[in-house]
Design a protein around this nucleic acid. Structure first.
Length: 537
DNA sequence: TCACCTAACACCTTTGAACAGG
DNA sequence: ACCTGTTCAAAGGTGTTAGGTG
């Protein structure tokens, strides 16, 4: 059953897709096995080994269930005793992980206008970025934090008449990439002791991107999601997962800003755009003045030439008027409207969940290798079953959206049950310290909130635990009870489960070997994952 | 003609190496 | 040999804009 097509529908595409490139009739599992072996031997990247359940793994010859072997080799005290029913201490905040969007007020300012995110071929950071505070985690357990960005609906948008309008069907879904927070894996104590920022994540519209950036379509509406996954180390995922969605972080991707109100907000709140502010040297006034000075100098030079020429040769070479033409002004966007209230997100349940364990020779690999190395892990998550994510505001794109309404209290938080042997595991003292975050790029300086109007004070913002669902990841133990999901409040758009899938391209030197497009060459940067692109219905 | 995309640009912040001084 | 603070250049993050593309 391991990596079976039944359990992971996305795998059914693997032979065909791989065949487009170099797959030649090998058994897919063998292929993946080779893929893994190649990756590991090269030490260039880490690939996630997906194990649906330990029992199944035991009779599959690819890899013995050595994660459990390793787990059993650990002192019992490190693994911790199985939780006793009714013992509150044995359920260490499993389902109480909370997440705040620390810069929620800034996001709300953008959201009230209609957040736009520039995407470029080389990759562009998000602004505002996701700044999060975590609480309720087990201090000693290790967690991995993931960011992914999923389409909100099936529409393409156009900015018309001061607002965004759905104008057609969305482009074909691109391969989902997941950004792993560079601190991962780290203890709950680590995550809770600081503000978590995903400012290193970059967005691109380059479907052939080899840098590992998150690939999105322009003029589509997206929703970032953050996943907190318990993990003994980077190679041994599984167990509980909590997924958080902040509706006010939805945005529309653009290659150039459409709404000048957004441009204004970005300039006023992003320190890197300080030069474009009213008093900045790159402001329109200063640029016009520069242009004028430049033309004046040119005119003067030409006038001198004219003087000399006319006096020497009696030829008039008077140049044209160098004054720059006034720029047309863009229409002012429509006034924002208050968001609807009282809506809730819903997330249907899914099938059983596999754990994610690794073959023996991967056990000693540490996640710090990933973050320090320019080449990072490409992890494919399997199709894990039907997951419908449908934030309330975007299930049915309104004909004209001058801004994406959001409902702060309707943020989605999903937590999952954990497999015993994984969740009960204690700290692993032999694991290296978490790597420094975002080493190759500069971080954002503090946002100068004072520079922009405050629509809201900035109280701590908690996503409400609207629904308590099984994990986006499949459960490890099918025997564990799973709640029956209430009916979705909105028609389910194609579901977007977080799916881990094996990387099928071992011969290529980079971890991001997309099946979606071929010719993925070059080196990858950034702790990203690839996630299967196929929507699950 | 139009909507959209791209690359070059100037200005800005961040980062880290080099250096001086205690 | 350390530590701390300053300076400076390079790298990279911004929005703007002219020109390209289909």
């Amino acid at each position: 059953r391991m990596l079976s097509v039944e359990m992971f529908p996305s795998l059914s595409l693997a032979p065909q897709r791989i065949g487009e490139h170099f797959y030649r009739g090998e058994n897919v599992l063998t292929y993946y096995h080779k893929s893994l072996t190649s990756f590991i031997s090269n030490s260039k990247l880490l690939t996630l080994w997906i194990q649906t359940d330990r029992e199944a793994a035991a009779h599959i010859s690819l890899f013995p269930p050595t994660c459990d072997v390793a787990a059993k080799a650990l002192p019992l005290r490190m693994l911790g005793p199985p939780p006793a029913p009714g013992d509150p201490a044995s359920k260490p905040q499993r389902d109480e992980v909370k997440m705040e969007l620390e810069n929620a007020s800034l996001w709300k300012q953008f959201s009230s206008v209609g957040t736009e995110m520039i995407i470029t071929k080389k990759g562009r950071r998000m602004f505002p970025g996701l700044k999060l505070k975590l609480s309720g985690m087990n201090q000693s357990l290790r967690y991995i934090l993931l960011l992914d960005i999923v389409p909100v609906d099936n529409s393409r948008y156009r900015f018309q008449g001061g607002g965004w309008q759905a104008v057609g069907s969305a482009e074909a879904r691109l391969p989902d990439r997941v950004f792993i927070h560079p601190d991962s894996p780290a203890t709950g104590a680590h995550w809770q002791s600081r503000t978590i920022s995903f400012h290193c994540a970059k967005l691109t519209n380059n479907t052939l991107d080899t840098q590992g950036h998150i690939i999105l379509h322009s003029l589509h509406r997206y929703q970032p999601r953050v996943h907190v996954i318990e993990a003994r180390d980077v190679l041994r995922w599984g167990g509980g997962q909590h997924s958080f969605v902040f509706p006010e972080t939805q945005f529309i991707t653009v290659t150039a800003y459409q709404n000048n109100k957004i441009t204004e907000l970005k300039i006023n709140s992003n320190p890197f755009a300080k030069g474009f502010r009213e008093n900045g040297m790159n402001s329109k006034r200063q640029r016009d003045a520069r242009q004028k000075r430049k033309m004046d100098v040119l005119t003067e030079t030409l006038d001198i030439g004219k003087y000399a020429t006319t006096h020497l040769f009696m030829i008039d070479i008077l140049p044209g008027n160098p004054e720059p033409a006034p720029l047309p002004t863009q229409p002012v966007p429509t006034q924002s409207q208050p968001p609807p209230s009282g809506l809730q997100c819903s997330l249907p349940s899914h099938g059983s969940s596999p754990s994610f364990t690794f073959p023996p020779h991967m056990q000693n690999l540490s996640f710090s290798n990933v973050s320090h190395n320019p080449v990072h892990a490409a992890l494919h998550l399997p199709n894990l079953g039907h997951q419908a994510f449908a934030p309330p505001s975007f299930t049915h794109p309104s004909p004209s959206l001058s801004h994406p309404p959001f409902q702060p209290s309707s943020c989605l938080a999903v937590s999952s049950s954990l497999q015993h042997s994984v969740t009960a595991a204690g700290p692993l003292p032999n694991l290296p310290n978490p790597p420094p975050s975002c080493p190759p790029t500069s971080s954002y300086p503090p946002v100068e909130l004072g520079a922009i109007p405050q629509f809201n004070p900035a109280p701590p913002y908690h996503p409400e635990m609207v629904l308590h669902r099984p994990s986006l990841l499949p459960q490890l133990d099918p025997a564990l009870p799973s709640s029956t999901p209430p009916p979705a409040l909105y028609p389910a758009f194609p579901s977007y489960p977080l799916r881990l899938r094996q990387d099928p391209h071992p011969s290529l030197p980079v971890p991001f070997r997309h099946l979606y497009r071929q010719h993925q060459h070059g080196r990858s940067q950034g702790p990203y994952l690839d996630v299967g692109a196929r929507a699950v219905f």
